[in-house]
């Protein structure tokens, strides 16, 4: 066991980083005068406050013991990959194939998934979304497109 509550150390550092980035970027805008509040005022103040809060999370965490962070990469990777693939495919090959890919890839995230369930589910979702969003709501999106 290492010293310090890793979860809150990381959390505090991240909050400081996010707050610091916003505060730093905000200095590029006008602060305005006392009466007329400029574009930088709120984001800069909120960024500084976030950094203070982050320090408040970080510092006590350095001096107490904590549990290690439990991390299971499998669902994270496959679920995020499925969203990524949707973004890559939707305008190139259209809704139907993009959604079949989304179901197939996201299903890899769970140990329980079975191929004989995933295949019909992917086809069902592709057709259902086409019916709901394209036919039903009339949203403009490519349904099937030849990538070449």
């Amino acid at each position: 066991m290492h010293r310090g509550d890793m979860r809150d150390i990381l959390g505090g550092l991240l909050v400081i980083a996010v707050g610091g980035t916003f505060a730093w970027a905000a200095t590029g805008y006008s602060f305005g005068s006392g009466r007329v509040i400029g574009a930088a005022y709120l984001p800069f103040s909120a960024g500084v406050i976030a950094m203070l809060i982050g320090a408040g999370i970080l510092i006590p965490a350095l001096f107490r013991k904590g549990n290690p962070i439990e991390f299971n990469p499998r669902p994270v990777i496959w679920v995020l990959a499925s969203v990524l693939v949707f973004g890559l495919l939707i305008q190139r090959v259209g809704l139907i194939i993009a959604l079949i890919a989304v179901v197939a890839i996201s299903a890899l995230g769970s140990r329980e998934s079975k191929i004989w369930q995933v295949v019909p589910l992917s086809i069902f979702m592709a057709i259902a979304c086409w019916l709901i969003f394209v036919r039903g709501l009339g949203l403009p999106m490519p349904v099937l497109r030849n990538p070449l």
Binding site: V83, F86, V102, V103, E112, S113, M125
Partner: peptide, 18 residues
């Protein structure tokens, strides 16, 4: 749940894209 969540991801993706 393994049947439910891929379906929800589909709806989320299409919903956001739309």
């Amino acid at each position: 749940y393994q049947l439910l969540y891929p379906a929800i991801i589909c709806l989320i993706c299409v919903g956001v894209y739309s």
